[in-house]
């Protein structure tokens, strides 16, 4: 049994906690949250030992691994403290408020040989995994253009302030929402390392951006567009998609449906020339416990297995999340 603790029982934290609670190899040894009501419910009905001080929790419960699901501005200090105490760490995204902090954590985790992962769950979505496989194998040919998009109804009226509406706490569409798209592009193609121009627009929020539109370049030399808006109420929930146009074909994929067009006879097995459509249901492995999408269970299972030494620690590492933080900072600077 792996002893796991969690810091921050908010929306993502509670979701992680439920998936961890159902995991056959995990024992939850402690939960840290500042909300009394949340702690009381978890203690009374789940029987978890709850804390308000994460260092006390770690000292007392001696977990092997810790999940960090607090607002972004706390990630750096907490993750650093945890790494220094020799804990494997799963951190929520975005990783840190700036890439200097992320880089420092990358180096500590590396030097201490600790398993590290960040919650960019799209990397565990079957369609996006397939997009990466097709692109990596060269079936799309030379990349000519890409578009990364995400739309959803997060902020659809002027509303009360939370940490997500505070630019100093990691709030805003670029940090919170566009980071998913940026991270996907970085992973499928190569990291975004330049920005030819970006618009960060406020629609309802007073202090932060609600939409991000940017022309970007990636390390391998190609260019594309990032278009993200979290104030679009025509979407029922977040919809993330990538379009990649290459010399040999074109891919349009979201988390449910992958459409790919091959211009030539050079296509992967199971595909044909012209348009092909694959659904996530064909591309997804069953999980042992389902809560809200296979990817959420799969990313946790992957982390647990990495700590157990069963899988390599190569998906959503601190290093990849640091590069995403770098890309975010480059886009922010250009706006």
């Amino acid at each position: 049994m792996l002893k796991v603790a969690l810091i921050g029982a908010g929306k993502m934290g509670i979701s992680h906690l439920s998936i961890l609670g159902a995991h056959p190899d995990v024992q939850i040894v402690g939960v840290c949250d500042t909300s009394k009501i949340v702690s009381e419910v978890l203690e009374k009905y789940s029987g978890f030992e709850c804390f308000t001080d994460y260092l006390k929790m770690v000292d007392k419960t001696k977990p092997d691994a810790v999940f960090v699901a607090v607002p972004t501005k706390f990630h750096y200090k907490m993750v650093k403290d945890l790494l220094e105490r020799g804990k494997h760490v799963f951190s929520e995204k975005p990783f840190c408020l700036n890439p200097q902090e992320s880089k420092e954590l990358v180096d500590i985790a590396k030097s201490k040989k600790l398993i590290n992962q960040v919650g960019y769950h799209n990397k565990f979505v079957g369609t996006f995994q397939e997009v990466k496989r097709i692109v990596d194998a060269g079936y799309i040919g030379d990349i000519q253009h890409f578009t990364g998009e995400a739309y959803g109804p997060v902020v659809i009226k002027k509303k009360s302030e939370t940490w997500r509406s505070d630019p100093n706490e990691g709030g805003g569409c670029l940090m919170d929402y566009a980071s998913h798209v940026i991270d996907l592009i970085n992973d499928i193609l190569s990291p975004i390392d330049s920005c030819k121009g970006a618009m960060l627009k406020s629609i309802y929020s007073k202090q932060v951006d609600d939409a991000v539109y940017a022309l970007v370049g990636i390390e391998s030399g190609e260019t594309g567009v990032i278009s993200v808006n979290w104030s679009d109420e025509t979407y029922r929930k977040m919809s993330t998609s990538v379009t990649i146009i290459g010399s040999k074909g074109k891919i349009v994929s979201d988390a449910n449906e992958l459409k790919v067009y091959f211009k030539t006879k050079d296509f992967p097995e199971g595909y044909s020339k012209g348009w092909n459509v694959k659904y996530v249901t064909d591309l997804t492995e069953e999980v042992s416990f389902y809560l809200r999408g296979e990817e959420y269970s799969a990313q946790i299972d992957y982390f647990i297995k990495a700590v157990q030494g069963i899988v390599p620690n190569v998906i959503n590492t601190f290093e990849s999340a640091w590069k995403t933080d770098l890309s975010i900072s480059i886009i922010k600077k250009s706006s």
Binding site: I14, S15, L17, S18, I19, L20, G21, A22, V41, L42, Y45, S46, G47, F289, Y290, L291, R292
Partner: peptide, 15 residues
């Protein structure tokens, strides 16, 4: 299901 399964994972069978 999202609530049933959330409570199930959290071990909150009382609810």
């Amino acid at each position: 299901n999202v609530i049933t399964d959330l409570l199930l994972g959290l071990g909150m069978k009382d609810f």
